[in-house]
Design a protein around this nucleic acid. Structure first.
Length: 994
RNA sequence: GCCCGGGUGAUGGAAUGGCAGACAUGGUGGCCUCAAAAGCCACUGUCCGAGAGGGCGUGCGGGUUCGAAUCCCGCCCCGGGCACCA
């Protein structure tokens, strides 16, 4: 079906009727209609204005509908039958909606930056653009061959210079914005500067520029302050460095076991200056607005989980030796503050260097000095380090050397060292020791915790290892003591583990506040009030979400529209200098300088590009370009907006056009929040693409470039197609198509036995089935229909080469009912159908419409098969030469059209219509024909069906009851027992309770 | 450990409080055919029964209800997500 079709199998043609619907005829029909659709622009969806507005008057009265697929990465190996499942689903839905009076936008593009093309380039020297464009051409051919009704004028690839120019433009918009916490939205940086200059604003979020008035700052200080508040900023921080991919990665791209999502390579922490996007500023809105959108609960749950909102308090612990400095900790259990017996800082915490003491105290145990690390960390004496300074420095080296994998895999033994410093518990005034330990993470909360070993399991374990006091301040219930085999009210120091549940507070009172006797929630409120009143802290909210690391050390991505001046400070290029295009390089490999430093990105090889003389307002100067590129997610953050207005060179999308397609969903929901009406894709993007795209969309919304707060109103996850995969004795997959079944029910590959398992279809399991081969054997319409019929769209399902003949037979039978297989003549006439057939037809119409509306294509197909079987029976009963009633034939063809558009077009044309079925209205069901004149009611006696009684559809309850009681079978089932009660479900059943 | 899904014939699945197993595959029998099938017809949850008919049946155990695959409680199994996030 594509450029190199596998030869159609020789049809059993010698004797098969010439006009039987088989592969040969199907393929001929399909090719012909695909050509015609393309020539006639059948799938063009007009915009309300602008260059794509031709023909809008034809659809001006229709509601709009925007149906979107997660666009693919154009891989070199082409599609397998698992890929198009979602694409066929959206195509059927889009066609159904168009046939029920909507102006439907359905387009397809290519997420074409990315690693495989670059890796291929490294190996072969072939420019990634060459491979990418060849792959796109292949994929486009395959989509066309599947009969997908995309508006091909709107196709974009993220690698198109005309496209990534706008990706860079959006980057600049974000760069030139800051998040105003009072307004709760992104605003232009220019407004911040104006407010600071005028004195209308003194600070951002209580943070004063250098603690001094704006006017007293130097130009460099002002610039640094502004840069610190941009939504895109440079940050020096430990990042996820993945040598296997040669780049750093965002947190979202690293799996829980510390490996890369793509490729499964180990990931290490390295401190590095990188671009980040301030997605954390939007954490609350990204969380709250999940309530506005219709997404699967599990996807919302994953995003909520990832954002990780926790409510708690910031508490300041002044240093014992320097009360002017305080350690701010974040805790979700401020109610346990009286039980805090030590503090722990993350190894990277900035205060560590400041507070570390000169020498150990006499009483400091060896474990506090790092003795536990002797033998684990090189150079640690058996009694620990000689001084806190050495211990902290040594521990920091140790902690930074451990990869995430190691921290994960090594059992969670708590390690750490004492800093020699003490802090003051603000409730008790007691001095508590301050430790450094890597179980506290710098990136979360304040990077410091108060440890309450009695009521937190992690702190409990640490306290056990370091001999720290355990003070209970929440009394566990009696059952807790019983479960642990303890006497009631055993002291916390003798507990086997922390008690983390709710309980009654105790030992928690000072002159200002008493929590004693309070339950957890009340205690939290009371202590928060007290903390604020004495200025020792406040209730706060913290998020797990981190800022988005946006730099990649790769070639095949969008260049940053940023240069560095002679001070090494970044300068954004003006819009007029866009696009910044990728330079040619002779080698796509990163340059490795030495093992400790990160490799220099491939763009560094383009020497004459990397250094550039520009006039950025201060006369021509030499600048150094940013050599990193953007992550692949950048291009996919906004492609759904570009489909709307792909050729616009003045704006990323015309506001009129954007409002038309994005605003005011046409669905029945109230209120409508807008966005894409239906977005279908795999579940694997739950916290990557879908989170990033929401973030960018919100920035664009705040800045007035789009009109809806969310990009995707309704999200639907299609399932995966699974297939048998076979592994050899080493556990490696072997080519599934070459496996043969042996006599004993086992399987073998090249004579060796292999094991069968079910897995996601794809390259890695070597179990891919090509759509081209299926189309050659049965036709594309059969493939489409089969994919829709095999189960609900959101369910994973195993591919079965066996079952597919079922839907093929259906198409063949339908064809035969309408067309003479020998002569090709129409077997339809204008006589009205019989009453039964007509009622069947109208029930089918109602059912198919409802099923398609709810994306239940599998049951829609079943209903069409039933209707066709009813037609077949009718024709058989009428005897030789019977003809199908046109009324039934046309309705069936129209209902089939969204699912199997080629054969439907062909039949529609043969039925004498000159216009495409694509733009024909679907039939509507006549409600009068949905109820039978007479219904057969099952009659239950004592809850079991014992008889069936035919009654008129309009019969009242008394009449039905009389008919039921008069029935012989009912009387036999009753066997003389008295009926105590009669339950009537109108039109459904009768239940006699005895 | 916590949070989501899910468990129905030989198989994919239907039924979301009212006839369990729609539709399809496979299987069995028959028709057509020299022979065949991507053709046509019938049967096909399971057990008892020659049959009529009956018993049992939606992972397991309990409950609510006239009535439960469906709702509730407890458990088992499978899949996915999260997990040193204070």
């Amino acid at each position: 079906m594509s450029a190199a079709p596998s030869p159609a199998p020789a049809p059993p043609d010698d004797e098969a009727p010439r006009y039987r619907y088989g592969a040969t005829l199907a393929n001929e029909i399909e090719g012909r209609w695909q050509d015609r659709w393309e020539a006639e622009g059948t799938y063009h969806a007009p915009n309300p204005s602008g260059e794509l507005s031709g023909g809008f008057e034809r659809v001006a009265g229709r509601p709009k509908l925007y149906v979107l697929d997660m666009f693919p990465y154009p891989s070199g190996v082409g599609l397998h039958v698992g890929h198009p499942l979602g694409y066929i689903g959206t195509d059927v839905y889009a066609r159904y909606k168009r046939m029920s009076g909507h102006n439907v936008l359905h387009a397809m593009g290519y997420d074409a930056f990315g690693l495989p093309a670059e890796q291929y380039a490294v190996q072969t020297g072939q420019h990634p653009r060459v491979t990418t464009e060849a792959n796109i051409a292949t994929m486009r051919r395959q989509f066309r061959a599947l009969g997908l009704g995309h508006d091909d004028r709107r196709s974009v690839a993220t690698t198109d210079i005309g496209y990534y120019r706008w990706t860079q433009w959006i980057f600049l918009q974000i760069y030139h914005s800051w998040y105003d916490p009072e307004a709760g939205r992104a605003r232009p940086v220019a407004e911040l500067v104006a407010e600071l200059e005028s004195g209308a604003r003194l600070a951002v979020d209580d943070e004063h520029p250098e603690g001094r008035p704006w006017s007293s700052l130097s130009a460099a200080e002002q610039r640094a302050f502004v840069d610190d508040h941009r939504l895109v900023y440079r940050d020096e921080a430990p990042v996820n460095w993945c040598p296997g991919l040669g780049t750093v990665l965002a947190n979202e791209e690293v799996t829980p076991d510390g490996r890369s999502e793509r490729g499964n390579f180990p990931v290490y922490k390295r401190p590095l200056q990188q671009w980040k996007m301030r997605i954390t500023a939007f954490a609350e809105r990204l969380l709250a607005d999940l309530d506005l959108i219709e997404w699967p609960e599990r996807i919302k749950a994953m995003q909520r989980n990832w954002i990780g909102r926790s409510v708690g308090a910031r508490v300041d612990f002044p240093l014992a030796h320097d009360p002017s400095t305080a350690i701010a900790v974040f805790t979700t259990r401020p109610d346990t503050l009286f039980g805090a017996t030590y503090l722990v800082l993350a190894p990277e915490h900035p205060l560590v260097g400041e507070l570390v003491a000169g020498s150990w105290g006499d009483a400091d145990p060896a474990s506090w000095r790092g003795a536990g690390l002797a033998g684990v960390v090189e150079g640690v004496p058996a009694s620990g380090w000689g001084s806190p300074m050495e211990a902290v420095a040594g521990y920091r080296r140790y902690a930074s050397s451990r990869s995430d994998v190691e921290r994960q895999v090594e059992s969670r033994v708590k390690t750490g060292v004492f800093t020699g410093a003490f802090a003051v518990n603000p409730t008790t005034g007691e001095h508590v020791p301050v430790f450094v330990a890597d179980y506290v993470l710098m990136g979360y909360g304040t990077g410091a915790i108060m440890a309450v070993p009695a009521h937190d399991q992690r702190d409990f374990e640490f306290s056990a290892a370091f001999g720290l006091p355990v003070v209970g301040v929440v009394r566990p219930p009696a059952v807790w003591f019983a479960e642990h085999g303890l006497e009631a009210d055993t002291r916390a120091s003798a507990w086997p583990e922390a008690f983390t549940g709710d309980g009654v507070h105790m030992a928690s009172a000072n002159e200002g506040v008493s929590l004693d006797g309070l339950a957890t929630a009340e205690a939290v409120a009371a202590v928060n009030t007290w903390l604020e009143s004495v200025g020792a802290g406040e209730a706060t909210v913290t998020y797990r979400l981190r800022d988005w690391l946006f730099s990649r050390q790769r070639y095949w991505g969008e260049p940053f529209p940023v240069v560095y001046d002679e001070d090494g400070l970044p300068v954004a290029l003006p819009e007029s200098m866009l696009p910044v295009t990728l330079p040619e390089v002779d080698d796509y490999t990163p340059t490795v300088v030495d093992d400790d430093r990160l490799p220099e990105p491939p763009l560094g090889r383009a020497k004459e590009w990397a250094e550039v003389v520009l006039d950025l307002g201060e006369g021509p100067r030499t600048y150094r370009r940013e050599l990193d590129t953007m992550p692949q997610w950048a291009g996919s953050c906004w492609y759904y907006l570009r489909y709307l207005d792909p050729g616009n060179e003045a704006a990323l999308v015309d506001p009129d056009v954007e409002r038309y397609w994005m605003q005011g969903s046409t669905q029945e929901r109230q209120p409508a929040f807008g966005g894409v009406d239906l977005y279908v894709g795999g579940v694997e993007h739950a916290v990557l693409h879908l989170l990033y795209a929401r973030f960018w969309h919100k920035v664009l919304f705040d800045l007035g470039h789009v009109s809806t707060p969310e990009p995707f109103q309704r999200l639907y996850n299609q399932g995966y197609i699974l297939a048998d995969a076979f592994t050899d004795e080493r556990g490696f997959p072997v080519e599934a198509s070459a496996v043969v079944a042996d006599a004993e029910g086992g399987f073998s590959f090249e004579g060796r036995p292999v094991r069968r398992e079910l897995g996601k279809m794809g390259k890695s399991l070597k179990n891919a089935v090509s759509p081209d081969a299926i189309a050659a054997e049965y036709g594309t319409d059969t493939l489409r229909l089969y994919e829709m019929a095999m189960g609900p769209l959101d369910a994973d399902r195993p591919w079965s080469g066996r079952d597919i003949v079922g839907v093929h037979r259906f198409l063949q039978k339908l064809w035969r009912n309408l067309v003479d297989e020998e002569t090709g003549a129409l077997r339809v006439d204008d006589r009205a159908p019989g009453d039964d057939l007509r009622r069947t037809l109208h029930r089918t119409i109602a059912g198919v419409r409802a099923d398609m509306e709810g994306l239940r294509f599998n049951t829609a197909v079943a209903k069409l098969i039933e209707a066709n079987n009813a037609l077949t029976r009718t024709l058989a009963q009428a005897g030789a030469g019977a003809r199908a009633p046109r009324e039934v034939a046309e309705a069936l063809v129209l209902m089939l059209a969204p699912l199997a558009p080629h054969v439907a077009e062909e039949l529609w044309a043969r039925l004498g219509h000159a216009t495409s079925v694509v733009w024909t209205e679907l039939p509507t069901a006549d409600p009068a024909l949905l109820v039978d004149e007479e219904v057969e009611l099952p009659v239950q006696v004592a809850g079991k069906v014992r008889a069936r009684v035919r009654v008129g559809a309009g019969a009242d309850e008394a009449a039905v009851q009389a008919a039921v009681l008069a029935d012989e079978a009912v009387q036999a089932a009753l066997a003389g027992r008295a009926v105590r009660r009669v339950v009537m479900v109108p039109g459904r059943l009768v239940n006699l309770v005895v």
